[in-house]
Design a protein around this nucleic acid. Structure first.
Length: 607
DNA sequence: GCCGTTTTCGGCCCGACTGTTTTCAGTCG
């Protein structure tokens, strides 16, 4: 198995954990954690960079030492320092850090005083009351450990964005009803639209004496109160979701919202920026000495730091601060920019509603076109269409389009990409469609090389428009397939076809980093609902959130285009010349894509 | 361990809450 960035990130993460237990310099530990994050997030493969002889220490947070360790892992598959640390510290001790309330110092103390090296030993010691005897520990801490064990701790569970959002909306409505509360908003990864949310961060401004903290902690769904003070409280809901509430005065609202929205690396970068300017930034405001110079709004803080306003989805310290300084932030795509949806199902396969109902619902969501893309025959379980049924649906859609007002149905299919990369329906029927959406629905577990080759072959098919849910992941249920995404994105560029960002909250696939890779390569992304009922067009907002996290603007998204501009782009992917289309050629790539396609056909014929 | 229009050494974001303390360290976000 070739070493990928995530492998090296894991090595650095473990080194950081072990160094932490050893009580090493915290900034040294942070250097490893920062490097792990950089490696995990960057689109390019460091292995490939090394093969090309590029300098790794040009990467942020990577110096000579870490560059050397990266090369060592790539070349040998292991890291001498990690091996040494593993010998010095018992394996399993890092698992103790997962218990809330236990940090490196206490884990170290437990080891030195009681000889505890594993979770099991810790539980035994806690049950026997030995933990409470240790200096600095008490009955409460001992109980904390037992409680954590009961809840099967260690798994740090995350919730899907859409589910967390519903909970947040309900809590915010309750908070707004508490006397004295002026504003109540959500921050954290929810506001940044991360695909999953670890906990909710809520913020209120409230008058003095408002009972907001007490009411919050006494809520009906509250299982446990972790902490409760005058300005801050943490609870755990019955669902296991942790919620943190913070109250600040109105003059600090913007600074506090900024702080509570994060991300942590973004906050650190801003605070450093403030520091360099002789200022101090905290959740109460931006200060010069004792004087607050900004803080009532987020915009006031950014402005005082010499930055353009940064949208929450971009606040990850992935270059947004530099871009804001030189006015180079993208105008991000918005839900209202979407003019259509290119992936949906009706009763004909596994959807719940008729074509007409779906069309009307799409129009009600402000869309001007909707592609009908039923499953193909291989998915017999969901009544996938064979060529005959698809041909009849084509006629049905033509008839329906003649009657429909204000919305156009496009004729498509979600054809299965078979294990060898061929498509599940004959060319003759695929060629009659407006677009072909291809997707994998079985054998998600092929080895990287084989899975990648499977996708590349499918995308080379003469009728192939959009690769749907490219990684195949289902959050919490199925991991992403192991594919070489960069090659897939480059293939899409060569071939002139498109990648889907499936907006279903359990998928959100492409992920944000892949979106950014597509943008960098000039490949358009289609944000689609994959709606199986009229209710699911609302899910488009989650897809838009991911796209925004991937820095996509309206021009980077396929279905922001008007229908007349979209048609030639789709026609080119279907092997039809764009010149056959009556409407004006779009600004983007259609002629070039057609040219590439002709070359491709030549190759196919000669091959 | 990284980094540098002050620095190749000496910095590295900042504050709230808890538990176990007799004034604060540890943890967390």
């Amino acid at each position: 198995m070739p070493i990928v960035n995530a492998d090296i990130a894991a090595v650095f993460g473990e080194i950081a954990d072990l160094l932490e237990l050893q009580g090493a310099n915290p900034f040294r530990i942070r250097a490893y954690r920062n490097a792990a994050r950089t490696l995990g997030e960057m689109g390019r493969s460091v292995r490939a960079m090394l093969e090309r002889g590029e300098d790794l220490d040009a990467l942020p947070g990577i110096g000579a030492d870490l560059a050397g360790k990266i090369a060592e892992v790539v070349n040998t598959g292991s890291c001498a320092q990690l091996e040494r640390l593993r010998r010095e510290l018992p394996p399993g001790m890092t698992a103790l850090l997962a218990i809330p309330g236990l940090g490196p110092k206490r884990v170290r103390t437990l080891h030195d005083e009681l000889g505890i090296e594993t979770l099991e030993q810790l539980l035994v010691a806690a049950r026997e009351g030995r933990v409470g005897q240790v200096h600095g520990f008490g009955a409460k801490t001992q109980q904390l450990i037992l409680d954590a064990a009961q809840r099967q701790l260690a798994q740090d569970r995350r919730f899907k964005l859409a589910a967390a959002s519903q909970v947040a909306d309900a809590l915010l409505a309750e908070l707004r009803a508490v006397p004295g509360v002026k504003q109540a908003v959500a921050g954290g990864s929810l506001r940044r639209m991360r695909d999953t949310v670890g906990d909710l961060d809520l913020l209120v401004t409230a008058g003095r004496g408002s009972p907001v903290m007490q009411r919050f902690a006494a809520g009906a769904d509250v299982e446990r109160v972790l902490s409760q003070g005058a300005t801050r409280a943490s609870i755990v809901l019955r669902s296991g979701l942790q919620v943190d509430l913070r109250a600040v005065p109105p003059a600090s609202f913007g600074a506090a919202w900024l702080y509570f929205t994060g991300s942590k690396p973004h906050n650190i970068a801003l605070r450093r920026l403030a520091q360099e300017a002789g200022l101090k930034l905290n959740e109460y405001g931006l200060f010069r000495g004792d004087r607050r110079i900004a803080g009532a709004t987020e915009a006031s803080v950014y402005q005082a730091l010499g930055l353009d306003f940064i949208e929450p989805e971009l606040r990850e310290d992935r270059g947004e601060i530099d871009a804001a300084r030189v006015h180079r932030l993208p105008r991000l795509v918005q839900l209202a920019d979407l003019r259509g949806d290119l992936h949906s199902h009706s009763k004909a396969s596994d959807g719940h509603d008729t074509l007409e109902a779906m069309a009307n619902a799409a129009r009600a969501h402000g869309l001007q076109y909707l592609a009908v893309t039923e499953h193909s025959k291989r998915l017999a379980l969901v009544h996938g269409l064979d060529a005959g049924r698809l041909a009849r649906q084509i006629d049905e859609i033509d008839a329906l389009n003649a009657r429909l007002q204000g919305i156009v149905l496009l004729k498509g299919v979600e054809v299965d990409i078979l294990e060898d990369g061929s498509l599940d329906l004959p060319d003759a029927i695929l060629g009659r469609l407006d677009l072909v959406v291809g997707a994998i629905h079985h054998r998600f577990d092929l080895p990287r090389e084989q899975q990648t080759a499977r996708l590349l072959r499918a995308m080379d098919h003469p009728h192939f428009s959009i690769l749907a849910h490219p990684s195949g992941r289902l959050i919490d249920e199925r991991p992403a397939s192991d594919i070489d995404l960069q090659r897939v994105v480059r293939k899409a560029r060569e071939r002139g076809c498109f990648l889907e960002l499936n907006a279903h909250p359990a998928r959100l696939d492409l992920g944000e980093l892949a979106c950014r890779m597509a943008r960098d390569e000039g490949v358009l992304v289609s944000i689609d609902s994959d709606a199986h009922s009229t209710l699911e067009f609302d899910n488009l907002r989650w897809g838009v959130g991911q796209a925004r996290r991937g820095w996509l603007g309206p021009a980077d998204v396929l279905n922001t285009r008007k229908l007349e501009d979209l048609r030639p782009l789709l026609a080119a992917t279907m092997g039809r010349s764009a010149s056959a289309i009556t409407s004006a050629a779009p600004r983007l790539a259609a002629p070039a894509a057609a040219g590439r396609h002709q070359q491709l056909r030549k190759r196919v014929r000669s091959g």
